[in-house]
Simulated assay, not measured.
Amino acid sequence: MAARTPVRFMTWNLRFDSMPDNITVPQTISSLPNPITEPAVFLNLTGEQPWSTRRIKVYERIIGEGIQILGCQEALVRQVDDLQELLGDGWDHVGVGRDDGVDAGEFSPIYWNKSLFTLINNDTFWLSQTPFVAGSKFPGAGSVRIATATHFKLNKSGKRFTYINTHLDDQSDAQRQLGASLILWRAHSEASNGSTVILTGDFNSQAAGDGSGAYQIITGQLAPIAINQTFKEAFPIAKRSLPNFEMLDLRTQLPRISVAGNWATFTGFVDPADSSQYIHIDFIFGGNNGGWGTTFHKVENQLTDDGVLASDHRPVIADLLL
C-alpha cells in the first residue's frame, strides 16, 4: 500500500462580524504591539471584540498550528476576504453566502494550501426540504443553513478525497436532523463511488443528551429522516454499497493520550474562569469506508494575554493520514 500523506485539518466557527467597522487588514497589522514589550495590563480586554481585532488572532492560530486545510463557519463576506488576504496567494478558498448563493449571509468556506492540494470541483447545497434552491430555509429554523462540498487531489500522491463543511441550526433540532440526514446521504454517495470522505462543522448538537439527534444520525446511532428525492437522485448510492455507512468522530478513534487540549468547543465570550456556557458541538469526522487514518486530535485554546478571545468557539484540529 502506498504511503499515506499527513494532513492537518481544522474546523473553526469564527463568530460572525457582529461589530463591523472600516478598519482594514493593513491597519490592524500596523497597530500590532512590539512583540518583546510586556503588556501594560494583562487581560485588559473583556467580552467580544470586533472582527478587526480578532482576525489577526485567527490567522496566527491557523499558521501557528500548521493547518493545511480548514472549514470555517459564520464567516460573512468581509471575514472570508480578510482571511484570504491574511493567508496570502499560497492559499485559496471556496464558499458562498447562504442567503443568496453568492455573497449574502454567512459562509461555510473551505480554505486550503495550494502547494498541497488541488481543487477538482465544489458545490453548495441547502439544508432544507429544497436543497438545490439557494436561500431556502427549513421551517422553524433560526437561519438558512448550507453545506459546502469539495473534491480535492493531494498534489504529492494524487489521492482524491471529498471534504464537506457545514453549520447546522442553533434553534431547531428538526433542522439539524434533516441537515445531518442530507449530509450523511451525500457522504454515503461519495463513499459508494470510492471516495474517502471527511466532514467538519459546527453541529450545534452534542454527542449525547437533548438535541443530540444530528450527531447520532451522522454517527449511525439514529436512523436518518426522509430527505428530498431529487437530492437522492442527484447523488445516488450504489446498490448494496456500504449498507452500514456512517461517519466516525475522530475523537473516538484514537487512544486517550492522543486526544489533547480541551473538551469544550464553544465557550462564549465570557470570563476565562466562567465555564457556565461550555459545550462540545464542533467536530471532525471520517467516513467508515476508510482511506484515512488519524494520529492526533485536539481542541485548542484561543485566549491571548490581552484578553482577546478570537471567537466564541475554539478551533478543533486533527492530524489525518490520507
Rank of each mutant, 00 (worst) to 15 (best):
K232N: 09
H167K: 07
I146H: 00
P224D: 11
S136T: 11
K156R: 10
V144E: 14
G135P: 12
A141D: 13
K159C: 05
A207I: 14
T148H: 04
R240N: 14
S205R: 05
A191H: 04
L127I: 12
W126E: 13
I227T: 15
P131F: 08
N165S: 09
G194A: 01
S189G: 07
P139T: 13
A223V: 00
G209K: 01
G140R: 12
L199Y: 00
N244V: 11
F161N: 01
L199I: 06
G194D: 02
V144T: 15
A149C: 09
S205H: 08
F245N: 12
R145N: 12
S192K: 03
W126R: 04
P139G: 10
F138C: 12
K156A: 05
A238N: 11
S189D: 10
A191D: 00
W185P: 08
D169W: 05
N193A: 08
A208E: 08
T148V: 03
I146C: 00
N155E: 13
I183K: 02
G209A: 06
N204M: 09
R145Q: 11
T219H: 07
S241W: 07
R145Y: 07
I198H: 06
Y215C: 05
W185C: 02
S189P: 02
D173E: 15
L154Q: 14
K232C: 14
Q129S: 15
A174L: 12
Q216F: 00
H167E: 07
R160V: 13
I217D: 06
Y215P: 06
I225F: 03
T130G: 11
Q206W: 02
H151K: 15
N165Q: 08
P243I: 14
L199H: 06
A147W: 00
R145M: 11
A207Q: 09
H188S: 15
I183D: 02
L154I: 15
A208I: 04
P236F: 11
N244T: 14
